[in-house]
Simulated assay, not measured.
Amino acid sequence: MKKDEHILLIDGMALLFRSFFATAVTGQFMMNSKGLPTNGVQGFMKHLLMAVDYVKPTHILVCWDMGSQTFRNDVYSEYKSNRNAPPAELIPQFDLAKEVAEGFNLANVGVPGFEADDCIGTLAKVHHKERKVTVLSGDQDLLQLLDENIEIMLLKKGFGNYQTYTTDLFIEERGITPMQFIDVKALMGDTSDGYPGVKGIGEKTAVKLIQEYEDIEGILNNLDKLTLSQRKKIEADLDMLHVSRKLAEIHCEVPLPLSIENAVWSNVSDASISYIEELELKVLRRFLLSADSLIASG
């Protein structure tokens, strides 16, 4: 166990979207002199750097979606089809966010056909046996990754506020294990991801069934013990239940480079500060000037 090594995995998409919509609602897109909106990017980097200051990792990787089509669209064509196209002011910030992350010597990770969550899951499950892993996101789906040496930090309102989950806390709070969380989601579906699960089964019933029968297989082996209503609903939506299970599970075997030598973190350099001045990221610059602990000395 490399006890002194601590990897911070960042859900770049979650941070960028959260930051964009937090300021877009009042029309503050923070255009620079080239007419490029920067509100999402500045909030994304501020969230990221505050988490770095809080966690003090030795390595950082930022994970991204690479386009909207993934293997989940092959499993279920309606997957995420209910989502609106991103606003025009957000679109140029996808590439800009990755460029700014690179300007801070951060390693970007993304593989076409997979989501950021899948990259996070793959990296977390490979590295947690040897080092501590912390995941930063706003997405509760990632709680299924909780394991020994893996903690999930969920962003709360504002900057620098987190709900940090360990496996023990999750079990205590939810009454199920992180792996069982996948089966609960398969039963209840996910409206934001656009898959229905079993019609008529909500979170409360899904949790109760999984607590009683351990997993979906256990439920299907004991259909005769369910109420008539529950049994009818599950039998009517059996195919969708299996599809939803595939969609709910984070895929932890993404083909990506697992060497982390290029992910070593070593504070914010003068070059990074010059870079954000060039891009006119004034909010980010103000924040950095007040964050001594993040700046490389000398």
Rank of each mutant, 00 (worst) to 15 (best):
L256H: 08
S81L: 12
V75R: 15
S259M: 03
N161E: 08
L258I: 11
R18G: 01
V184W: 10
F287H: 04
L145Y: 10
L143A: 06
W64S: 13
T177H: 14
L187E: 08
M30C: 06
V243D: 09
Y76P: 01
Q211P: 12
N32Q: 04
F287C: 09
I219V: 12
Q163E: 13
L256W: 14
K129Q: 11
I182R: 06
I216H: 03
V52F: 10
E89H: 03
K129V: 02
Y162P: 03
L241W: 06
L220Y: 05
L143W: 02
N108P: 00
I273P: 02
R174S: 05
K208R: 08
E212K: 14
Y76W: 14
D193N: 08
I7D: 02
E278D: 14
R286I: 01
Q211I: 12
T134S: 13
T58I: 09
R231F: 08
A291S: 12
M50N: 12
L61K: 13
P57R: 07
I276N: 13
S68H: 10
L155R: 14
I91L: 06
L209H: 03
E151S: 15
V100S: 06
D141E: 08
H6P: 07
D183F: 15
K208T: 08
S290M: 06
H242C: 05
T38D: 00
S19G: 15
D53E: 13
K98S: 04
I60Q: 03
M50F: 04
K56H: 07
A263H: 07
H6A: 15
S68W: 06
I260E: 10
P37G: 04
F287L: 12
R18V: 02
Y76S: 03
L256K: 10
V100P: 12
Q180L: 07
Q93N: 09
N161S: 10
A116E: 06
K282W: 06
V25Y: 00
L142P: 00
A124S: 07
G40P: 01
H6S: 14
R285E: 13
D193V: 06
L123S: 03
P112L: 05
K56E: 09
I216N: 12
A124V: 09
S192M: 10
G67P: 03
E280H: 14
D270K: 13
M179N: 11
Y76C: 07
G200V: 05
H128V: 03
K46E: 10
L279V: 14
E130M: 08
F181A: 09
S19W: 00
Q144N: 10
V135T: 02
F114G: 11
A263L: 11
F44D: 03
C63N: 14
P87L: 07
T191W: 06
L281W: 04
G197W: 02
I10Q: 05
A101H: 01
L284H: 08
Y213S: 05
V254F: 14
S33Y: 15
V133Y: 08
N39G: 07
R83K: 04
V184A: 06
D239F: 13
L96R: 02
L288Q: 11
G67R: 11
D292P: 04
M31G: 08
H128G: 07
S229P: 06
W265V: 03
I250A: 12
V75T: 14
T38K: 01
G194F: 07
